[in-house]
Design a protein around this nucleic acid. Structure first.
Lengths: 217, 217
DNA sequence: TTATTTTTGTAGTCATCGCTCCATAAATCC
DNA sequence: GGATTTATGGAGCGATGACTACAAAAATAA
């Protein structure tokens, strides 16, 4: 029932097989720096995280920063990717579990309740409510995040479609609407988490939300 | 069933009875300027709205700005107040309607679906997901918004409590959890709205959410 | 009319923002 | 060893952020 989440830096490092080549070697662990940046962006958002905040947390200088990551915006995109692949991996993992559709969604919500209130990571979700209000100059960023949100909702649609094929759900179920409902709920839970709601309350929300699960006719 | 929302500037002006006194008179309509600022903050958030954006939209100079509103942060607080009292008034209005509790909540959700997708105002809610990720220097702002969110959830709790007293709800209903559920959903719907979800889809979400309403034993 | 009060317009100020330049350091290739 | 390549440290840059100083303008009070 529990899902093992790996956010540790060491584990991340293994995926970066220490490139050997000419030139002076990097004096810092790129994956570790990326992880530090992700936590900062997650906690404070894009605008709320200054360049100096980043270099300080990553333990590198401005030149190393630009040499390794290109720009603040490029780094942000990388941290979003890292979040999806690592800290937020529970989402896709659970959707691939070989249980029935209702159990899968119940598991998704209870895991969200737990993940959104971990004490070793920022609360809530890095993407759920990010950049919904931003300057027109940040349109690319807003679109990037909106796209991520759309993709996660699409993943719910896909899983519900499989549920219909498996006979878990009535064939006439409005799966787009049902996906939108659980999607909205998860985003709201993320906001609640950032406001400091207790984990147990989030679990109660999850329990109530499963009451809305469609009943066979 | 429909709720009349007044956001028009003219209507707002009537509450400011044109102070007469010594000194040069203000050359602009304060309520109108406040309304323009509210729309800007609502659409772009606090950080995403620059001082120049504000003065341009309000049609006033920097000195007039500070003379009339004190600071950017003070203006933001005023716009939040204006939002709660005017553009977001449907929320408290509906909670005071003399219908049964279930109908009240159903009305709340369908109205949210409609209000979050008006074409004469920014989409979504000004407060629902604002400043959940921000710099530590903006702690006051974040707390201000978190407080507003807490208050709206408390209003739901109060209404549910009345429902128990009226016999609309089973006495053992976990009203705090139920309020948290609908609160989370509304916030998620606001995020969806900002991502451009169609109004009809929001109405479907509202319909599904009412399936979670507690059933008498 | 003159004094007083308040608002306005213009031209700044100062801090911070993300970012860049360039000389130097540390590795590999020949 | 010398050439080449890549990364680092440190200084600083232009743009923008919110905000302010100050004199002139426009009203009322005496």
């Amino acid at each position: 029932m529990t899902t093992k989440i790996i956010v540790d830096t060491q584990a991340a490092t293994k995926t970066a097989p220490t490139r050997r080549g000419r030139g002076r070697p990097q004096s810092f662990d790129r994956a570790q720096a990326l992880c530090a940046a992700m936590r900062l962006f997650w906690d404070r958002g894009y605008d709320g995280t200054s360049f100096d905040d980043l270099t300080a947390a990553m333990g590198i200088s401005a030149s190393s920063f630009y040499n390794a990551f290109g720009s603040k915006e490029a780094l942000y995109q990388e941290t979003i990717d890292a979040y999806v692949k690592r800290a937020g991996a529970w989402f896709t993992t659970i959707l691939q579990e070989p249980t029935d559709t209702r159990s899968t969604f119940a598991h998704l919500l209870t895991t969200a309740a737990t993940e959104f209130t971990r004490d070793d990571l920022p609360t809530g979700c890095m993407i759920a409510a990010a950049a919904t209000q931003c300057a027109p100059t940040q349109a690319r960023l807003r679109d990037l995040l909106a796209t991520q949100r759309t993709q996660s909702e699409t993943a719910l649609v896909t899983r519900l479609q499989q549920g219909i094929q498996a006979g878990d759900l009535p064939p006439d179920t409005d799966i787009k609407a049902l996906a939108a409902f659980y999607s909205a709920l998860l985003r709201g839970m993320a906001v609640q988490a950032r406001d400091g709601i207790p984990r147990e309350r989030l679990h109660e929300i999850a329990r109530i939300a499963m009451q809305a699960w469609p009943t066979p006719p």
